[in-house]
Design a binder for these strands. Structure first.
Lengths: 331, 331
DNA sequence: TTGTATGCGTTATCAC
DNA sequence: GTGATAACGCATACAA
């Protein structure tokens, strides 16, 4: 049998109401009551049951961060940003992983529907836009590191199109003419945006778009390996490779090194995300840095604002990115 | 105002009890009731409030995995193992990060005390053994990837002492005489165990223990960099470096490469954890593989068993590790 | 098969 | 300043 507020009340010889008041630091209690209750709490080893409290208050002070998996190291900073923002307002952050299964993502959102959390941040939504927008009308949902193709739900992200453009344009500026792209089969908006930036830069420079130089895979280093292997088998090899994630780039560079390619000279590489390992790899990888911490902090703040307000902010916010130049582009 | 089971009952013209029965797939309901209730649920867009359900049932079917941060990529497999085991039994896994703050770890355990979750797995406990054992008498707690110096709480780990011994002995077998160790200042039992294995192997081979060859830092690649820098400044440099984590090793190898050292010949490297990047680094890193997925699966299974049983399993279980040999040891 | 009534542990609203 | 007591949303024992 668990110890409840009733037991404490009995032990302290006061009513449950008084115990509750003491526990919640209300000001309309006598010092004596505070003392006697605290002593009873201590003696009984009581800790309040939040299920009762949450039920009564209809809030949990918890928000859920839904990520694909913890393998993507850059989530770490995003989550740190969320936690910092949340703890400031008395919220806790819980994390759950979808493993890229839209169905499981929906299952996790069940925690939101069933009020086990007050809100949810989708950091790699696999559900379709329509479903998400539908849900966000009823529940407190925000999207981080990503945006929807259509408007209608709070998003905090970067301008991925511009980022893809910047990276590609930089390679063009280095005199590169055959710039390959490694992207994902999954049509996440961020991937599509980065691709579009790549296309725009090529077009602007009057360079042709060569389908042989575009590879569709997943976010793993294996994809990088396979893509690079294919590229190097071409009669006309690429002189630069832009990948939409650092992990892919690292796989691709691995392959290039094995083929005796001199990275930063024969072929330039640019990745995306600026993960910790990107600067530990030899040679160091040039990449696009997105402000992970800031995006996490911002999306959490805006979500909490939505939670405690009637009017809902459904805007899309784009934070600034930065091109980081290292050895893999000869810098 | 939220839609509750009452609203559904009213709309379906049945009692709340019947609605509840339908929702929980009880068999003692007529097909007609099922139909009418489901239609009402659909129409109203009702989804049950778990706070009520959980409170009533005194269980949440959720367990909490407490990790230091999501930056440690090997947690991914551990969590996958936990999730697979849990979903099989209808449990959800929530993740929360301590950021290496024992106080915050205690705060997170508050979710357990307050019954927001049914159990918790500590994957990098920073709290002292006494506190943990104390708590585990009252709450369902298990420890994964780690053990306590004393007995008293369910642990699933590997034999870290043996693993440290195996790694060091392998280096000795390669003819190495000056084997350095990079470990952590934090006295986690796993670190201490790995160190002790290192000492035992040296002693057994009649090699002296040289304090200049032992560096205490944290789990980051920066620690590896700094340690290696110091080692290379010694008059008598090491001919092998064993680190208690791959991330450290990668930092150390980075430093070695910068100094023109030939890895796998001048100096051999062995890491720990077999993270994905260890085989992507050039040269590929030899390491100790610990069965992350299996440890996660096992600890979750045993914790759930404890949750649904009177008698508590407080044993320590050690799963087998493997030495993975790659280029950094000249293999 | 169904409905009524009770209680899970807490907070909030009263009256005192 | 304090104590009864009524909610919160749900599941279930019991009665019908």
């Amino acid at each position: 049998m668990n110890i409840t507020i009733k037991d404490v009340a009995k032990a302290a010889n006061v009513s449950v109401a008084t115990v509750s008041r003491v526990l919640n630091n209300k000001n309309n209690v006598s010092q004596e009551a505070v003392n006697v209750v605290n002593r009873a709490v201590e003696e009984l080893g009581y800790s309040p049951n939040f299920l009762g409290r949450d039920l009564r208050k209809s809030e949990t002070k918890r928000i859920l961060a839904i990520i694909s998996s913890t393998e993507q190291t850059f989530y770490n900073d995003v989550l740190r940003g969320m936690q910092d923002a949340c703890s400031k307002k008395g919220y806790d952050v819980l994390i759950a992983t979808t493993r890229n299964d839209p169905e499981h993502e929906l299952h996790l959102l069940g925690m939101l529907f069933s009020r086990a959390v007050d809100g949810a941040v989708l950091l790699a939504p696999k559900l379709d836009s329509k479903t998400i927008i539908e849900l966000s009308r009823k529940y407190k949902i925000a999207i981080g590191l990503e945006r929807l193709s259509t408007d209608g739900v709070l998003c905090v992200t970067i301008d991925n199109e511009k980022a893809g453009y910047d990276a590609t344009k930089y390679l063009i500026g280095k005199g590169r003419k055959r710039i390959a792209l490694i992207t994902t089969e999954v049509r996440s908006q961020s991937s599509v945006d980065r691709e579009n930036g790549y296309y725009r830069a090529l077009k602007e420079a009057g360079l042709p778009i060569d389908e042989n130089l575009i590879y569709f895979g997943d976010y793993t280093s294996d994809t990088g390996l396979r893509a690079c292997e294919l590229f190097l088998a071409l009669r006309e090899k690429p002189d630069a490779i832009f990948s939409i994630s650092d992990t892919i780039s690292i796989g691709a560079m691995n392959c290039a090194v094995q083929h005796g390619i001199t990275i930063g000279k024969d072929i330039l590489f640019i990745g995306f995300d600026n993960i910790a390992y990107s600067s530990m790899f030899i040679p160091k990888l040039s990449t696009v840095d997105q402000p992970c911490y800031l995006q996490g902090k911002t999306v959490a703040e805006k979500l909490m604002a939505n939670i405690s307000s009637e009017e809902q902010d459904t805007g899309t916010y784009m934070l600034p990115h930065t091109l980081i130049l290292r050895e893999s582009t000869g810098d």
